[in-house]
């Protein structure tokens, strides 16, 4: 058991997670030696034979049981393959997805693995199983240390970090506060520095149309966003804004900035998905556990059909290693 290891959680067992994980490990064989999979082993066996791969698995409970000659799996909730309803939202799916993530966090906190890459889970299933989290970001927030964290979407063309994520648009307005905007500016700065940007150029989007046009269409820019930008500038950060939401991404894409601070989920997701559909990586930044993930969902509609692409997962592994 030499070298750096990382975890991959298989996500909801009824979705495409197990399939894209095996495809990724098949596409990049070297990962077979360093990846610890968190999820249902019987399902891995099933996809292994369906895909015609000849992978061997080794179930472990703790890192000391690592076997270099097989793919190591931590199965938090062993079930028979017949219990898994592929393509369906189930409470069992939610339970397995949650317990896999919990286990991966424990391994990461013990430094048994250096980062965690997550395959998609289904929030409805999670809630059915009695785990009221809005998503991976929030589970990691609850079980790791780190007072402040944010969701960063990463692609070669565009990088976006979010002030709020899985809340209603109405609630997102209430979360647009000076202290939080400043916190997210700091997170953007720290993360890009880790990836190798010397003095990251950060653009802050407005919340309202035309960035509020001097308070005519909303005053969050004046009351919250501008004061946060001023304070960040006073600290010496390279920050601009608030920039009208409908031009900030275009200008970032053209090279004016390295990253955009978006005020709500869709403000950042619309441009990123348009530009990098299925190749973007979702990173939770600011925690003591590094977590990256694919930026697509469980895709229940194509689960079990072997049509899912492993591209985003491979990218997520690569970025996780850089951080």
């Amino acid at each position: 058991m030499e070298g750096k290891k990382f975890g991959i959680t298989l996500g909801d067992p009824c979705g495409i997670g197990p399939e894209i994980t095996l495809k990724a490990l098949h596409a990049k064989m070297e990962y077979q030696k360093s990846a610890l999979l968190f999820g249902t082993r019987s399902l891995l066996e099933y996809y292994n034979s369906l895909l015609g791969y000849e992978m061997r698995f080794n179930t472990i409970k703790k890192i000391e049981e690592w076997d270099d000659s097989a793919i190591n799996v931590y199965d938090p909730h062993p079930v028979d393959i017949s219990q898994i309803q592929v393509g369906v939202v189930t409470s069992l799916g939610g339970t397995i997805a949650f317990e896999s993530v919990r286990a991966a966090i424990e391994f990461a906190l013990r430094k048994d693995i250096s980062s965690v890459v997550t395959a998609p889970l289904n929030k409805e299933a999670l809630h059915l199983a009695g785990f009221p989290y809005a998503g991976h970001t929030e589970i990691f927030g609850a079980f790791t240390k780190g007072e402040r964290y944010a969701m960063l979407l990463y692609s070669e063309k565009l990088k976006v970090i979010h002030v709020s994520t899985h809340v209603s648009l109405r609630k997102a307005c209430d979360l647009c506060k000076k202290s939080r905007v400043l916190e997210v500016i700091h997170l953007a700065h720290e993360t890009l520095k880790k990836i190798g940007y010397e003095n990251p150029r950060i653009a802050v989007a407005g919340l309202n149309p035309h960035a509020g046009e001097n308070g005519i269409f909303g005053d969050e820019e004046i009351k919250e966003i501008i004061p946060a930008i001023e304070e960040a500038k006073a600290e010496g950060l390279n920050v601009s804004g608030p920039i009208p939401p409908d031009t900030v991404f275009l200008k970032a894409l053209q090279g004016s900035w390295d990253i955009v601070v978006a005020m709500y989920h869709d403000q950042g997701h619309i441009p990123l998905k348009m530009l990098s559909f299925e190749s973007g990586v979702n990173i939770t930044v600011g925690l003591d556990v590094i977590r990256t993930s694919v930026d697509h969902g469980t895709a229940f509609d194509i689960a079990g059909t072997l049509k899912a692409s492993e591209k985003s997962l491979l990218k997520a592994i690569e970025i996780g290693e850089k951080l």
């Binding site: 648009l169 939401p245 991404f249 275009l250 619309i270 441009p271 348009m274």
Partner: peptide
């Protein structure tokens, strides 16, 4: 439903 929902996409396009 709102201004930037469409404008962000159209301007990028």
């Amino acid at each position: 439903m709102y201004h930037d929902q469409g404008q962000i996409a159209l301007k990028l396009r």
